[in-house]
């Protein structure tokens, strides 16, 4: 118990870093991925092609390769990022590709009938988008998106491999000093679970409601 209270502040620091990385990645990838997803669905061919290529390529590469590429590879072209920003950039690159796919799927799952009904009562393109397409697409977007946030939190443990002291690395460091592995991993698992369980539950509820 004494050990628990000794290590707790250190672990909480790590947890904070995990949350910081996860939130940054989710916010950035939404900000980039949603516009790109819209362009992939509605944009001209010259815009769709590179977005399609990017999404397919990045989703086909292990996240670890992306992390090493950004951290160890980019310095070759004089882009020298410290480990934390490098980790966020690499994870964002991956998450953005996922968001693009989820957004595309959400838009394309809305039947054309909906647009035709909107046209036939005289709605212009912006009104069709705002009042008919987008509200329905958001409902299809949310459940897979929340699932993907769960993946982000779990996947963020990879940043420990770049030396970022997140929850994962702080656990390992504490274990390295105390040689008490099992209870500490247990505590770590519980912390991840405490973040992700409510998210998974939310996703299930959204799915029930909207799909």
């Amino acid at each position: 118990m004494a050990l628990f209270f000794q290590t707790l502040p250190f672990l909480l620091d790590g947890l904070l870093t995990t949350l910081l990385v996860s939130v940054s990645v989710v916010v950035l990838s939404l900000a980039i991925g949603i516009p790109l997803g819209c362009m992939l669905v509605f944009g001209p061919l010259w815009a769709r092609l590179p977005i399609r290529l990017y999404a397919d390529f990045v989703r086909g590469v292990p996240i670890l390769v992306l992390l090493y590429f950004v951290y160890y590879g980019l310095p070759v072209i004089a882009v020298n990022l410290p480990s934390l920003p490098a980790a966020v950039v690499a994870l964002t690159a991956f998450k953005t590709a996922q968001i693009i796919e989820i957004a595309r799927g959400a838009f394309q799952s809305i039947p054309v009938d909906q647009m035709e009904a909107a046209k036939s009562i005289g709605l212009t393109l912006p009104d069709r988008f705002v009042h008919v397409l987008a509200p329905q697409a958001v409902r299809r977007f949310l459940p897979p998106f929340v699932n993907s946030v769960v993946d982000t939190v779990k996947g963020s443990s990879l940043v420990s491999l770049l030396g970022v002291v997140d929850l994962m690395l702080s656990l390992q460091q504490v274990i390295g000093r105390t040689h008490i592995a099992l209870p500490l991993y247990g505590i770590g698992a519980l912390m991840y679970f405490a973040i992700n369980f409510p998210l998974s539950a939310l996703s299930r509820r959204l799915e029930k409601r909207f799909i």
Binding site: D113, Q114, E116, A117, A118, K119, S120, I121, G122, L123, T124, V132, P135, Q136, R139
Partner: peptide, 19 residues
């Protein structure tokens, strides 16, 4: 849009806005 509203349509599959 301005012209279409003068020929509003009712569809076989209703096509109501579900939301």
């Amino acid at each position: 849009a301005r012209i279409r509203v003068e020929a509003a349509m009712v569809f076989q599959q209703f096509n109501l806005f579900p939301h």
